[in-house]
Protein backbone atom coordinates (compact mmCIF):
# COMPACT_ATOMS: atom_id res chain seq x y z
CA UNK A 1 0.00 0.00 0.00
CA UNK A 2 1.33 3.44 -0.84
CA UNK A 3 2.01 5.77 2.09
CA UNK A 4 -0.86 8.01 0.94
CA UNK A 5 -3.35 5.15 1.17
CA UNK A 6 -1.87 3.65 4.33
CA UNK A 7 -1.86 6.98 6.17
CA UNK A 8 -5.25 7.84 4.65
CA UNK A 9 -6.57 4.66 6.26
CA UNK A 10 -5.10 5.75 9.62
CA UNK A 11 -6.65 9.19 9.21
CA UNK A 12 -10.00 7.55 8.51
CA UNK A 13 -9.77 5.45 11.66
CA UNK A 14 -8.77 8.33 13.92
CA UNK A 15 -11.33 10.71 12.41
CA UNK A 16 -14.09 8.16 12.76
CA UNK A 17 -13.13 7.68 16.40
CA UNK A 18 -13.27 11.43 16.96
CA UNK A 19 -16.55 11.72 15.11
CA UNK A 20 -18.32 9.11 17.22
CA UNK A 21 -16.91 10.54 20.45
CA UNK A 22 -18.60 13.86 19.81
CA UNK A 23 -21.97 12.59 20.92
CA UNK A 24 -24.03 15.69 20.26
CA UNK A 25 -22.82 15.95 16.73
CA UNK A 26 -23.49 12.25 16.14
CA UNK A 27 -27.04 12.58 17.46
CA UNK A 28 -27.79 15.64 15.31
CA UNK A 29 -26.18 14.21 12.20
CA UNK A 30 -28.28 11.07 12.25
CA UNK A 31 -31.50 12.39 13.77
CA UNK A 32 -32.03 15.42 11.50
CA UNK A 33 -32.86 13.47 8.32
CA UNK A 34 -34.94 11.01 10.35
CA UNK A 35 -36.90 13.80 12.04
CA UNK A 36 -37.57 15.53 8.76
CA UNK A 37 -38.68 12.25 7.26
CA UNK A 38 -41.03 11.60 10.19
CA UNK A 39 -42.55 15.11 10.14
CA UNK A 40 -42.93 15.63 6.41
CA UNK A 41 -43.89 12.02 5.81
CA UNK A 42 -46.65 12.22 8.44
CA UNK A 43 -48.01 15.67 7.57
CA UNK A 44 -48.19 15.19 3.82
CA UNK A 45 -49.27 11.63 3.56
CA UNK A 46 -51.55 11.82 0.53
CA UNK A 47 -50.99 10.56 -2.98
CA UNK A 48 -49.34 13.00 -5.31
CA UNK A 49 -50.06 11.28 -8.59
CA UNK A 50 -53.57 9.84 -8.86
CA UNK A 51 -53.63 6.35 -10.28
CA UNK A 52 -49.89 5.72 -9.76
CA UNK A 53 -50.15 5.05 -6.02
CA UNK A 54 -47.21 7.29 -5.18
CA UNK A 55 -47.46 9.06 -1.81
CA UNK A 56 -45.64 12.22 -0.80
CA UNK A 57 -43.71 10.27 1.83
CA UNK A 58 -42.35 8.06 -0.91
CA UNK A 59 -41.40 11.10 -2.98
CA UNK A 60 -39.88 12.73 0.09
CA UNK A 61 -37.82 9.64 0.94
CA UNK A 62 -36.02 9.92 -2.42
CA UNK A 63 -35.43 13.62 -1.78
CA UNK A 64 -34.13 12.98 1.72
CA UNK A 65 -31.71 10.33 0.51
CA UNK A 66 -30.37 12.83 -2.02
CA UNK A 67 -30.21 15.37 0.83
CA UNK A 68 -28.30 12.78 2.84
CA UNK A 69 -25.59 13.01 0.21
CA UNK A 70 -25.41 16.75 0.88
CA UNK A 71 -25.60 16.46 4.68
CA UNK A 72 -22.99 13.74 5.03
CA UNK A 73 -20.40 15.35 2.77
CA UNK A 74 -20.95 19.00 1.87
CA UNK A 75 -22.48 20.11 5.16
CA UNK A 76 -20.13 18.09 7.36
CA UNK A 77 -16.94 19.18 5.63
CA UNK A 78 -17.87 22.81 5.06
CA UNK A 79 -18.44 23.12 8.81
CA UNK A 80 -15.76 20.78 10.19
CA UNK A 81 -12.82 22.01 8.12
CA UNK A 82 -13.06 25.69 9.23
CA UNK A 83 -13.18 24.44 12.82
CA UNK A 84 -10.05 22.39 12.20
CA UNK A 85 -8.42 25.45 10.70
CA UNK A 86 -9.21 27.33 13.93
CA UNK A 87 -8.17 24.72 16.47
CA UNK A 88 -4.78 23.97 14.91
CA UNK A 89 -5.54 20.53 13.46
CA UNK A 90 -4.68 21.55 9.91
CA UNK A 91 -1.64 23.57 10.84
CA UNK A 92 -0.24 20.70 12.87
CA UNK A 93 -0.63 18.07 10.18
CA UNK A 94 0.64 20.48 7.56
CA UNK A 95 3.88 20.55 9.55
CA UNK A 96 4.26 16.75 9.43
CA UNK A 97 5.26 14.51 6.54
CA UNK A 98 1.65 13.26 6.24
CA UNK A 99 0.76 13.16 2.51
CA UNK A 100 -1.81 15.91 1.96
CA UNK A 101 -4.13 13.57 0.06
CA UNK A 102 -4.32 11.26 3.09
CA UNK A 103 -6.20 13.94 5.00
CA UNK A 104 -8.88 14.06 2.31
CA UNK A 105 -9.05 10.27 2.05
CA UNK A 106 -9.71 10.12 5.78
CA UNK A 107 -12.48 12.68 5.43
CA UNK A 108 -13.99 10.79 2.51
CA UNK A 109 -14.06 7.62 4.60
CA UNK A 110 -16.04 9.32 7.36
CA UNK A 111 -18.40 10.81 4.75
CA UNK A 112 -19.08 7.31 3.42
CA UNK A 113 -19.82 5.91 6.87
CA UNK A 114 -22.16 8.78 7.73
CA UNK A 115 -23.99 8.52 4.40
CA UNK A 116 -24.50 4.78 4.76
CA UNK A 117 -25.82 5.33 8.28
CA UNK A 118 -28.25 8.02 7.15
CA UNK A 119 -29.52 5.97 4.21
CA UNK A 120 -30.00 2.93 6.41
CA UNK A 121 -32.03 4.90 8.97
CA UNK A 122 -34.12 6.64 6.30
CA UNK A 123 -34.94 3.37 4.55
CA UNK A 124 -35.75 1.79 7.90
CA UNK A 125 -38.26 4.53 8.72
CA UNK A 126 -39.62 4.46 5.18
CA UNK A 127 -40.22 0.74 5.22
CA UNK A 128 -41.41 0.37 8.82
CA UNK A 129 -43.50 3.52 9.28
CA UNK A 130 -44.57 4.50 5.77
CA UNK A 131 -44.91 1.11 4.09
CA UNK A 132 -42.60 2.13 1.31
CA UNK A 133 -41.50 -0.74 -0.92
CA UNK A 134 -37.78 -0.93 -1.67
CA UNK A 135 -36.65 -1.05 -5.30
CA UNK A 136 -36.66 -4.60 -6.64
CA UNK A 137 -34.53 -4.43 -9.78
CA UNK A 138 -30.76 -4.61 -10.02
CA UNK A 139 -30.96 -1.75 -12.47
CA UNK A 140 -32.46 0.55 -9.80
CA UNK A 141 -29.83 -0.42 -7.23
CA UNK A 142 -27.08 0.19 -9.76
CA UNK A 143 -28.51 3.65 -10.38
CA UNK A 144 -28.57 4.15 -6.60
CA UNK A 145 -24.87 3.27 -6.43
CA UNK A 146 -23.68 5.53 -9.22
CA UNK A 147 -25.86 8.49 -8.20
CA UNK A 148 -24.57 8.07 -4.63
CA UNK A 149 -20.95 7.76 -5.74
CA UNK A 150 -21.01 10.80 -8.02
CA UNK A 151 -23.14 12.78 -5.55
CA UNK A 152 -20.71 12.05 -2.70
CA UNK A 153 -17.71 12.87 -4.86
CA UNK A 154 -19.04 16.22 -6.00
CA UNK A 155 -20.48 17.22 -2.62
CA UNK A 156 -17.24 16.28 -0.88
CA UNK A 157 -15.20 18.36 -3.30
CA UNK A 158 -17.63 21.29 -3.07
CA UNK A 159 -17.61 21.00 0.73
CA UNK A 160 -13.80 21.21 0.72
CA UNK A 161 -13.95 24.25 -1.55
CA UNK A 162 -16.76 25.88 0.44
CA UNK A 163 -14.78 25.46 3.68
CA UNK A 164 -12.52 28.31 2.58
CA UNK A 165 -15.36 30.86 2.59
CA UNK A 166 -16.23 31.24 6.30
CA UNK A 167 -13.86 33.47 8.20
CA UNK A 168 -13.84 31.07 11.15
CA UNK A 169 -15.36 27.89 12.50
CA UNK A 170 -18.12 29.65 14.41
CA UNK A 171 -19.58 31.31 11.33
CA UNK A 172 -19.34 28.17 9.19
CA UNK A 173 -22.83 26.80 9.77
CA UNK A 174 -24.33 30.24 9.11
CA UNK A 175 -22.78 30.04 5.65
CA UNK A 176 -23.70 26.46 4.92
CA UNK A 177 -27.26 26.06 6.20
CA UNK A 178 -28.98 28.65 3.95
CA UNK A 179 -27.28 27.27 0.85
CA UNK A 180 -28.57 23.79 1.58
CA UNK A 181 -32.08 24.94 2.52
CA UNK A 182 -32.54 27.03 -0.61
CA UNK A 183 -31.40 24.17 -2.81
CA UNK A 184 -33.66 21.72 -0.99
CA UNK A 185 -36.71 23.94 -1.44
CA UNK A 186 -36.04 24.54 -5.12
CA UNK A 187 -34.74 21.09 -6.10
CA UNK A 188 -37.75 18.94 -5.30
CA UNK A 189 -36.96 17.77 -1.78
CA UNK A 190 -39.62 19.51 0.29
CA UNK A 191 -42.01 20.15 -2.62
CA UNK A 192 -42.87 18.08 -5.66
CA UNK A 193 -40.56 19.44 -8.35
CA UNK A 194 -43.23 19.38 -11.06
CA UNK A 195 -45.36 21.83 -8.99
CA UNK A 196 -42.67 24.49 -8.66
CA UNK A 197 -42.76 27.68 -10.78
CA UNK A 198 -40.78 27.16 -13.92
CA UNK A 199 -38.22 29.89 -13.14
CA UNK A 200 -37.48 28.02 -9.91
CA UNK A 201 -37.08 24.77 -11.81
CA UNK A 202 -34.68 26.50 -14.18
CA UNK A 203 -32.71 27.92 -11.25
CA UNK A 204 -32.45 24.53 -9.56
CA UNK A 205 -31.40 22.83 -12.79
CA UNK A 206 -28.11 24.68 -12.68
CA UNK A 207 -27.21 23.03 -9.35
CA UNK A 208 -26.51 19.37 -8.67
CA UNK A 209 -29.10 18.67 -5.95
CA UNK A 210 -31.98 18.78 -8.47
CA UNK A 211 -30.27 16.08 -10.50
CA UNK A 212 -29.43 14.02 -7.45
CA UNK A 213 -33.06 14.02 -6.29
CA UNK A 214 -34.20 13.11 -9.80
CA UNK A 215 -31.73 10.22 -9.92
CA UNK A 216 -32.92 9.00 -6.52
CA UNK A 217 -36.58 9.23 -7.61
CA UNK A 218 -35.76 6.92 -10.50
CA UNK A 219 -34.54 4.47 -7.89
CA UNK A 220 -37.25 4.74 -5.24
CA UNK A 221 -40.40 5.56 -7.27
CA UNK A 222 -42.16 3.29 -9.73
CA UNK A 223 -41.11 3.62 -13.36
CA UNK A 224 -44.54 4.99 -14.39
CA UNK A 225 -43.94 8.04 -12.20
CA UNK A 226 -41.39 9.27 -14.73
CA UNK A 227 -44.37 10.66 -16.63
CA UNK A 228 -44.82 13.18 -13.81
CA UNK A 229 -41.33 14.65 -14.25
CA UNK A 230 -41.13 17.92 -16.21
CA UNK A 231 -39.38 16.07 -19.04
CA UNK A 232 -41.74 13.06 -18.71
CA UNK A 233 -38.68 10.78 -18.42
CA UNK A 234 -36.02 10.25 -15.69
CA UNK A 235 -33.31 11.83 -17.88
CA UNK A 236 -30.63 9.58 -16.39
CA UNK A 237 -27.99 10.48 -19.01
CA UNK A 238 -28.51 14.16 -18.17
CA UNK A 239 -28.31 13.30 -14.46
CA UNK A 240 -24.99 11.54 -15.01
CA UNK A 241 -23.70 14.38 -17.18
CA UNK A 242 -24.57 17.09 -14.66
CA UNK A 243 -23.08 15.13 -11.75
CA UNK A 244 -19.84 14.50 -13.64
CA UNK A 245 -19.71 18.17 -14.65
CA UNK A 246 -20.16 19.31 -11.06
CA UNK A 247 -17.56 16.79 -9.88
CA UNK A 248 -15.07 18.42 -12.24
CA UNK A 249 -16.11 21.91 -11.10
CA UNK A 250 -15.75 20.76 -7.49
CA UNK A 251 -12.33 19.30 -8.19
CA UNK A 252 -11.04 22.51 -9.72
CA UNK A 253 -12.53 24.65 -6.94
CA UNK A 254 -11.20 22.38 -4.19
CA UNK A 255 -7.71 22.29 -5.68
CA UNK A 256 -7.50 26.03 -6.26
CA UNK A 257 -9.16 27.38 -3.11
CA UNK A 258 -8.19 25.03 -0.29
CA UNK A 259 -6.22 26.70 2.49
CA UNK A 260 -4.41 24.85 5.30
CA UNK A 261 -4.24 28.02 7.36
CA UNK A 262 -6.65 30.74 8.34
CA UNK A 263 -7.04 33.67 6.03
CA UNK A 264 -4.16 36.07 6.61
CA UNK A 265 -2.05 33.48 8.42
CA UNK A 266 0.15 32.31 5.62
Amino acid sequence: MTPTLAIGWRRFQIELKEFFRERESVVFTFSLPMLLMLIFGSVFSGEIAPGLGVTFSQYFLAGMIASGLVYSSFQQLAIAIPVERDDGTLKRIQGTPMPKASYFLGKLGVVLVVYCGQVFLLLLIGVVLFDIALPDTTWQWLTFVWVSALGLALCTLLGIAFSSLPRNGRSASAWVTPVILVLQFTSGVFFVFRDLPSWMQTFASVFPLKWMTQGMRSVFLPGEFASQEPAAVWELPQVAGMLVLWTLVGLVLALTTFRWQRRGDG
Partner: peptide
Protein backbone atom coordinates in the same frame (compact mmCIF):
# COMPACT_ATOMS: atom_id res chain seq x y z
CA UNK B 1 7.43 21.52 15.20
CA UNK B 2 5.82 22.65 18.43
CA UNK B 3 3.38 25.42 17.60
CA UNK B 4 2.27 28.20 19.86
CA UNK B 5 -1.33 27.23 20.48
CA UNK B 6 -3.40 24.28 19.50
CA UNK B 7 -6.58 22.76 20.87
CA UNK B 8 -6.94 19.97 18.34
CA UNK B 9 -7.56 16.27 18.94
CA UNK B 10 -9.77 17.13 21.91
CA UNK B 11 -11.63 13.81 21.94
CA UNK B 12 -8.60 11.55 21.61
CA UNK B 13 -6.46 10.22 24.42
CA UNK B 14 -2.78 11.07 24.77
CA UNK B 15 -1.72 7.62 23.66
CA UNK B 16 -4.11 7.58 20.69
CA UNK B 17 -2.82 10.92 19.40
CA UNK B 18 0.85 10.07 19.84
CA UNK B 19 0.45 6.63 18.27
CA UNK B 20 -1.43 8.12 15.33
CA UNK B 21 1.23 10.72 14.58
CA UNK B 22 3.94 8.06 14.75
CA UNK B 23 2.45 6.59 11.54
CA UNK B 24 3.39 9.72 9.63
CA UNK B 25 7.14 9.21 10.05
CA UNK B 26 9.55 6.75 8.45
Amino acid sequence: IVLQTATDNAELSVSEVVSHFAHYYP
